[in-house]
Every structure is written in structure tokens, then in C-alpha cells.
Amino acid sequence: MSARDEVLRRVRSALGDERKPPPPVPRGYARRSAEPRADVVALFTERVAEGGAAVRHVGADELATAVAAALWGREVKRIAVPADVPYGWLAELDGVRALADSPPLDAAALAAVDGVVTGCAAAIAPTGTVVLDGGRAQGRRALVLAAARHLCVVHADQITATVPEAVARLDPVRPLTWITGPRGARGLEVLVVED
């Protein structure tokens, strides 16, 4: 008998013939929130800051300046960016070299950059978390986790009020990276764009 059949046989024999169906899962916990958007965004900012990461609010038209200022502030000289990062984000970079991850940067090239700039797929207010799914402006996992500093651009409408809202919004078939606080990505910094 194959190991597979043996394990499944053991499971079936352990559970027996007269199985009770499991009781339904009581989902009485907070799933959606009716809080005003402004409060949700404010909570996200508060929680990111509490976690020890720098966080700033910017208008869409100030984003390029804010990205450049954040990198200068940390003396970041070489960054890697996903190939499809919006050009406008990097328009004001002066004295910072940006390497697009296309073709994919090798390990040596990644080790030589001191920062990455990405977007995200969702953010979670009560936990101060950003979630990346490899989609637009987010890059592959190795790119995100390799660099010493991670500047993450979050659009206000990506911020969810609860963990269940984020789980519902995310596609589990994509590779998901949930980053909370500076211990997840080294030196996380967040820019919240109010559109």
C-alpha cells in the first residue's frame, strides 16, 4: 500500500463509520466595519507608526517628491523597483539610481541595492499591515525581502477596516506577503496617498 493510501486509510479508520457532521462555524466576529473611511485611514496610520515604521500622508500630486524625500532622508543611493512601477513615482529622484527588475536582477545585484520601492495589494488598518501579491508595482518576493529598506506606497482606498475584509479582497492563488512593522521588511516606510 502506498504511503498516501495508508495515511488516508488510517484517517478514515480513526474517524469511524458513524461520523457526526461538524457543527457550522459561528462567524459572529467582526467581518465588515461601518466606520467612516477617514477613521479607517487614520487608524492604519496610527498602527503603522505604533509598530515603529515611518508613515506619511501625501496628495497624489506630491507623491514623486515624497518618494524622493523619503529615500534622501535615509541616504538611500541605489534602489531596485518592480519593472511595472508607475514612472511618475520616480520622477523626482535626483542622485538615486533606480534599477528595474527586468530582466530579473541576480542575487549579487539585489545585495548591492539599499532599498526597494513598491506598491501593495491591500493594507489592514487595525494591524498596520501591508500585503503584497506580486501584482502591479509589487514585484517578486525575493525583490521585496532582499533590500535593507522598503518604501511602500499605499493608496487610501486599499486600506481595509478588518482582517476579514482584506482576506476577502486578496486572491490566495497569488503569492502573498503580509508585512507588519519594521521586523517584517527591514526598515519599512509607508506613504499613504490620499486620492
Partner: peptide, 16 residues
């Protein structure tokens, strides 16, 4: 409230 890093991986992702 949340651990530093959570990774969710489904099968093989081309290029990642």
C-alpha cells in the same frame, strides 16, 4: 496584532 511576516504560497508562481 499581526506577526512580522506572513507568506501565502499556492503552487509554483512563474517568475517568482
Amino acid at each position: 496584532r499581526m506577526t512580522a511576516l506572513v507568506t501565502c504560497l499556492t503552487g509554483v508562481v512563474p517568475g517568482d
